[in-house]
Structures are given as C-alpha cells and as structure tokens.
Design a protein around this nucleic acid. Structure first.
Lengths: 328, 328
DNA sequence: CTTGACTTCCAAAACGTTTTGGTCTATAGT
DNA sequence: ACTATAGACCAAAACGTTTTGGAAGTCAAG
C-alpha cells in the first residue's frame, strides 16, 4: 500500500510522529485485510513474554480442588484484562517441579510467576529470590522472607471456628489437619490450638489427625476418629473437601451431622452451601485473591515497585447447619 | 568458546553434521553456563507457537466446575509431556468469545485449539473449519460436520440411568436438563426420553425442567419439581453438580434421599462418591479424555493426519445410595 | 597428483516486529 | 535569502534462534 513497515508499526501503536490521516488509512487497511501483529515477533523484540506462569502443585493426577479452579479463573481473567497470557502447568512437588520453574525462567518463557501453596521452607521461593525473578505468592513462609504476597489469616479463621464450636457447647474437638509443611495447613492448625487455649480446653493430641486435603482423606481420617473409644463431638477439618468426606463418614455411622456431631470446613467452596447438611466453614474471596495476586505481579513487572506488597486478608465465618444442633 | 552459533544450535539439536567431540564440548559448556535457548526466538523462527489454546466457556465469574479442572489437568500434563504449552482463558459464550479465538489464531499465538462444550450449531467450529485451523473438540455437533473429536455417549449413559431407575420401581421420573443448545445436554435429554420410551412409560413434559448446570440451579429446579401437586419419585439431573443441589433441596423438605426419592447425576466428579448420600451417576474418565484430546491435537499438528479421529466413549453406570431404597 | 566423497564447520539469510537515528519537506523566524 | 524548527516519514539494526548453501579439510580411489 506504499507505507513502510516502520510507519505501519508506529501508526498501529499510536505514536505521534505519524499524521492523523496516515494513521486512519493504515488502521483501515489493516482492519480490512485482517492484519494482526505477530505476537511472537513482538515478544522477541521486546524481550518480554507477556506471560505469567502458574505451576500447580498436585499429588495425584486427579487435580480437582474447586478451590484451585476458582483461583485460576481469577488470575486468568485478570491477566487477560491486562494483556498477559497465563501459562498453567501442574507438577508434583519435588525435583521435577523445580526443574519446571528453572526451565521456564531460563528460557524466558514467562515474565513472572505466581506461587501457590507456600511451604514452610520453600525451595521455589529461595530460588526466585536468589535469581531475582519477579513473583508474587499466595501464602507466606515460616521465616518471614521479604517478598510480595497475599495471604489469608488462616490462624484467625480457625480460631473463629473453634470459638463457634465451643459456644455451641462442644468440649471434645478433633482436627483433621494437612501436611504441616504447607504453610496454610500450619496456620490453620495453630489457629485450632490457639482457639482451644483461649477456651481453656486442654488439647487432646490423639484427636489431631492428618489427611491429604481430599474428600477421601477426610473420610478416612474421620472414620479413624469415630472409631475411637470416646469419639469427639465436633470435627474441624483443614479444608472443605475433607470436611465433606468427614460428613460422609459420620452419616455412614448413622450420625445426624449437626445434631449428633458438628463438622466444619475451611474455604467455602461453592459446594459447601449445597452439601447435606450445608457446611459451616470459613469464607475467603478466592476469585478476588487470584485477581489481586495477578494485579500485583503485573504491577511489579511494569512499574517495578508496588505500594502494598504484604496483604493479609481476614476471612469470615459462615455458619451453616453442619455445626448447629437446632436448624434456624 | 570459539564455536559459531550455527554449530551450537546444531549441536544442541543433535544434528549429525557435528562431531561427537564438539557436541559433547558444546553441551558441557552450555550446561555449565546455564544456557537455555530463548524459546521466543525459536518459536518465531519456526513459525510455531508450540502452544495449545483452551478457552473455557463460563457464565459467571465463578468457574468451579470440578469437571473442568480435571479436564484441564489431563490436557495440561499431556501437553507438557509432548513439549507444548497450554494457554487457558475463560470467556462467556458470545461475541467476545469468538473474538478471543480470532485474535489468538491471527496473532499466531497458538498452533491449535481444544474446544469444549460443543453447541448444536457451533460458531467456533464453523469458523475453524473455514479458516482451516487445527482443532480437536470434546463433543460433536448436530449436523455431523467432519472434524476430529472425542465424545462420550451421553445418550447411552442417560438411558442406563433411566433403566436403573425404572428397575428400582420408579414410574414418575423427572429430569433436570440444561440449555439444549449444548450438545452434551441435548444428548443426555434424548437419552432420558429414549430410556422412558424403552420402558414404555409415557413422558410427562411438566417434569422436564431446565437448570444452569450449577448446584444452585439444581437446587432451585428440584424445589420447583417437589412443589408440584404430585411430585416425581425420582429426579435425574443432567450433571452431578445439579444433582447435588437437588439432594440439598430434597433434604430440606425432610425427604430421605434414596428411600423417599431417588436422585441421580452424570459425570462422577470426585465429590459424587462422598456426598450424602453418595450419588448414583455415570462415570467417564475425564482426565484421560483430556489426555486423548491433547494427543490427537498434537498428532494433527505434527503428523498432519491421525488414524482415529472420531472417538465415542461408552460411559459406565455407577450405582450408589442416592438411588436405591435399601442400602447394601 | 588429481578427483570425488565425506566430514565438520560456519556465514548469512530469515522469522516479523520495534527502536534508533536519521532524511526530506514545508513553514517560520531573522 | 538563509537558517532553525517542526512534522511526516523511513532504512537499517536489533531481538535470538534455525535453516540454507556452501567452504574447508581429510581421506581413499584412480
């Protein structure tokens, strides 16, 4: 059409050394012939992948924690909004996981990472900090390293649960914990202990068991608890999925959940509202957290600095029928 | 180190016009200095994005169908295995959705697409077929267009459900359908009708209602059904999520699910096994389907042709307590 | 000694953009 | 009439690879 590539590029990017007429013309022609800049070439030239990485730590192949899918949606939609791609993979925690991070960073496949499920001493975080690679975590670490994160106050949330249960008159509380290496599990367990301390109830270590965060794990651990000579009157689970498994175990024993035994979760996944009975749990706005984390990372990538980089959200207690004797 | 870029490139890619010694040397040095080829440059040069696109059709912002997360995991892990990235976004069905497909295709951001939730007359498929862009669908279309797909035999699955319910003695069956524009919903509804026909039971149109595939939708539609002057004795839902919502509604009415009313789902999400009561449903190996779809697409991209490109899987009936009067 | 074949290597082009550092023309200022 | 200044445009370099089409060097055969 008689314009140089330079001019076309500058016209489409709205530089001001292209006349209004030419811009209009170029845009029109581009539109007409369905031209879209090749994104790979752009990225190569700009040395930015415009891509955010997210590697989900998963144990088995069955990755179906509804908690994660909502989180991904939050990140993904926000990223699209800001002109970034979201690259998702899953790896079981361990060596392969670290290699995946390294490969993505060294090959400049992503500009920054979002980390989930932080661990007490997290190799991923240590690596990124040392490499100076941009990232934002959902969760903290044990030794308070300095990096941008968003986290829920899981300790507080679980204390609220315990307070609620003791107010309902429960004195023998059990806890289905999760691998303590995971920071969120650690916080929630601490919250459980703190809550009992506040209520002046001595903690019974045999009633603290550990599950794997799945319904199945919750089911199995709840059975163990119910099989004890003097079973608990209330079971708090570290997450909703395990709580649902626990409900299943209790019902199998012929117990009416809510009346004969109280069971609580944590996360408030959509299913919690519609389980039988509806589940008492702790709500956190996971979709919004995904958005926030993504925004923070993009801010970091574009501006270099962000104002608020240590955010801890107070979750809220949601009381439903699974923990109260009298409906209504 | 004294070797040309050409030689380095050819050494790392294991071409046979590089001596074994040189290869070893180059590899060693590369390893030592932590060199990884810039993937963006590779892609630009090869004119392939090595990326598979997946755009999830979602209604609200809350995207948490466990069904999808497992499907994503199947695709993502398989893609990683084959050296491809997976680019995930979500869009509500409609114009914006088509634009997202077009932008990704024209900007050569992805080499191929995986389509989910096919519709009866699917604009996305029409577009891709016309553009000659590689894709594999999970699901068919109404008019049997020629394109590679994997699908479940939903019609068969639902017939099995109906057969099971009638064998259990139910005569008044309700169905919570989903938007009939969605092929899988359409097939399942057809299966329901066919099942009743087989059993010689006349269909009662008022007992066929439509939900939105969420627990909430199932809950609301079930309430409507139970409010009728002569309510059904069995409710088959188009998917597990709605079935769980229906269970919730039935329990709220004081009904014992399994004894007073039978409720069934479809999908066999992990939760189905641990709901209260456990849900009778139809199982399909969704993780494996994700893997298959991904493999097919990569085969298409690399080989050009694939042997099996129309795969219909027979799902299997899973009978649990939600549909049988006597446990055991 | 020459020729051809084979091995090993590499310079340059290409992928499609953005950025740099101009050039050219017209207008205004002196 | 000459010189700045500003506006509109563009050629060439650069991003980091892979591919193409040789160029040397070595060896064996003639």
């Amino acid at each position: 059409m008689g314009k140089s590539v330079t001019t076309v590029s500058r016209a489409l990017n709205d530089y001001d050394d292209v006349s209004a007429d030419t811009k209009a013309l170029i845009r029109h022609v581009a539109e007409e012939m369905g031209y879209t800049p090749n994104i790979l070439a752009q990225r190569l030239r700009k040395r930015r992948a415009d891509t955010i990485g997210l590697i989900l730590p998963t144990f088995g192949p069955r990755f179906s924690d509804p908690f994660f899918s909502e989180f991904i949606a939050g990140i993904g939609n926000q990223a699209a909004e800001l002109g970034f791609d979201l690259l998702v993979s899953t790896r079981p925690p361990g060596d392969k996981e670290m290699l995946a991070y390294q490969a993505n960073i060294r090959g400049q496949r992503v500009d920054g990472f979002i980390l989930v499920r932080t661990r007490r001493r997290d190799a991923r975080i240590a690596y990124m900090l040392e490499a100076g690679f941009p990232f934002v975590a959902f969760g903290r670490t044990e030794n308070h390293q300095a990096f941008p994160f968003v986290d829920e106050d899981g300790e507080y949330g679980m204390r609220m649960i315990v307070r609620h249960l003791t107010q309902e008159g429960h004195g023998r509380l059990a806890f289905i914990a999760a691998p303590d290496d995971l920071m969120f599990a650690h916080h929630r367990l601490q919250g459980f202990r703190a809550g009992l301390r506040e209520a002046g109830i001595p903690i019974e270590e045999a009633l603290v068991v550990q599950g794997d965060l799945s319904e199945k794990g919750g089911y199995e651990q709840a059975r163990r608890l119910l099989d004890r000579p003097s079973p608990p009157t209330a079971i708090a689970a570290c997450n909703d999925l395990m709580a649902l498994g626990a409900i299943s175990a209790a019902r199998e024993r012929g117990l009416v959940v809510g009346r004969d035994i109280a069971i609580t979760g944590f996360d408030d996944i959509p299913m919690a509202e519609h389980s039988s009975p509806p589940l008492t749990t702790v709500h956190q706005p996971i979709y919004q957290i995904g958005q926030m984390v993504c925004q923070m990372l993009v801010g970091l990538l574009q501006g270099g600095e962000i104002e608020q980089d240590h955010i801890i959200l107070k979750p809220s207690l949601v009381i439903r029928q699974s923990s109260i004797a009298e409906p209504r």
